[in-house]
Design a protein around this nucleic acid. Structure first.
Lengths: 199, 199
DNA sequence: ATGGTTTTATGATCCTAATCATAAAAAAGT
DNA sequence: ACTTTTTTATGATTAGGATCATAAAACCAT
C-alpha cells in the first residue's frame, strides 16, 4: 500500500510476529498503522464459546486495521499472525501526517476503505440470506479476484485456504464446508485435486 | 454531511421519491452522490426467495451509496425509500471535485467510511457467530448510539424500527424477533410499552 | 523413521430458528 | 365509518446445519 521509502522516511519499523501471536486485540486503542511485509495476518473475532469469525486475511503489501485511525473507536477485532510474519508498524500521528502531506496516498486509502466496505456489504448479506454453498462460492470468487488481480475469470484458481478457514470466513462449521464443497464438485462448480480446491 | 450551501454551489438538486420507490439498483453504476434532505432511505438486498437484508437506514442529513464513487465497482445493494423522501443528488464528477478542493470534507468522508466499516465488521461477526437475542441487542444499541449521538447509555431509547425491520437488519425472521424481544423483556434487557420497544 | 499435530472425512443425532398457519390489533387509505 | 394493509402475536411442525464421535490421511518437527 505505502511504498517502503515513504514508510522508512516516516519512521516505520519492521516487527516480527510468530505464528499465533496477536498484534492487537479487539477493544484496544489503535496506535499504529500496519502493513504486511511478509507472511499472513488475519483479523478475527471469537465469541464466548470460542467460535471464530475471520474478518479478513492480509498478505504481502496489504495494510489492515486503519479504520480506527480515521475515526474515534476501538478495534472491532483482533489481529493474529497465521504464519510467522514481518509487519511494518508506523505510529498513528506519523501516518496521519503522511496522508495529510500526500493527497494521493490519502485518496488511495479512501478507495481501499470503500472496497473493503463493498466486500463486507456482500458478505453480511450473503451470510444472512444465503445458504452454505452459495456463501462458499462467493468467498472463493472473492479470493480468486483479490489475491491475483490480473487473474481471468476463466482461469482456474487454486484455493490456499483450509476448510476451517473457509468456515470461519463464512460463519459455517468445518463439517458443513467439507460437505458443501463435495456437493459443489458434483455440480461442477469447482473441482478437488488431492484435497485442494480449484475454482 | 455536506452543508446545503456547498451542495447548491456544486450543482446538487433535490429529488423526490415516493415510499417504496428505488433510487438505484444493486449492480448498477454509481453516477451520483446522495444525501437525505428529509425522509428515510434504506439500502438493501433481496435473495432469490425475496428475503431482504437491510444494509443500513439513512435519515436526515445522512449520505449513502458513496463507496462506489471512490473505487471502481457497481452498487452492492439497492436504495429504496422507506417513506416519501427528498434527497440531494450531486453528479459524481462534481462531488469528487468538491472533495478535491476541500480536504476537510474529504477527511470527513474517510471517517464516515471508517465508521461504517466498523459497524459492518461488528454486524457480520454478530450474524455469523451470535444467537438471535445477542444480535438484536447489538442492533438496538447501535441505533440508540447512532440516531441520537448525545444520548447517554443510561437513557431509555425508543426504538422506531418495526419487528420486520429488525429481522431484516439481523438476518432473522419476524417471528424469531418477536419471540426474542419477549424473552429479552423478561430478562430485563429492554421493555415494551404499547408494542414499542424501549432500550 | 517416528510421534505429534493438523486437516480432511463421514456417519448419527440433536436442536434451534425457519416455516407454516392463523388471527387479532393497529394504522393507513378512501 | 369502513375497507385494506401493515404490524404484532402465538402455536405446531419441519428442516438444515450444528454438534458429537471417530478415524484416516497428510503434514511437520526432530
Amino acid at each position: 500500500m505505502i511504498d517502503y521509502t515513504s514508510l522508512l522516511n516516516s519512521g516505520a519499523v519492521l516487527k516480527k510476529y510468530k505464528r499465533g501471536e496477536f498484534l492487537f486485540r479487539e477493544g484496544s486503542i489503535a496506535r499504529y498503522y500496519y502493513q504486511v511485509y511478509q507472511g499472513e495476518i488475519k483479523m478475527n473475532n471469537y465469541n464466548q464459546e470460542g467460535k471464530e469469525y475471520i474478518q479478513g486475511i492480509f498478505t504481502k503489501e496489504k495494510s489492515f486495521g486503519e479504520p480506527p485511525l480515521f475515526a474515534d473507536f476501538k478495534y472491532p477485532a483482533n489481529a493474529e499472525a497465521i504464519i510467522d510474519s514481518e509487519v511494518w508498524q508506523l505510529p498513528k500521528e506519523k501516518f496521519l501526517k503522511l496522508l495529510e502531506e500526500n493527497p494521493g496516498i490519502h485518496h488511495k486509502f479512501t478507495s481501499t476503505l470503500a472496497l473493503r466496505l463493498y466486500y463486507k456489504a456482500i458478505m453480511v448479506s450473503e451470510i444472512s440470506t444465503q445458504e452454505p454453498e452459495h456463501r462458499i462460492l462467493r468467498i472463493l470468487d472473492y479470493f480468486k479476484k483479490n489475491n491475483d488481480p490480473n487473474m481471468k475469470e476463466s482461469n482456474t484458481y487454486k484455493v490456499e485456504l483450509t476448510r476451517q478457514q473457509l468456515a470461519d470466513l463464512t460463519g459455517l462449521r468445518v463439517e458443513t464446508v467439507i460437505r458443501s464443497i463435495k456437493k459443489l464438485e458434483q455440480k461442477g462448480e469447482l473441482f478437488i485435486k488431492n484435497r485442494k480446491v480449484y475454482r
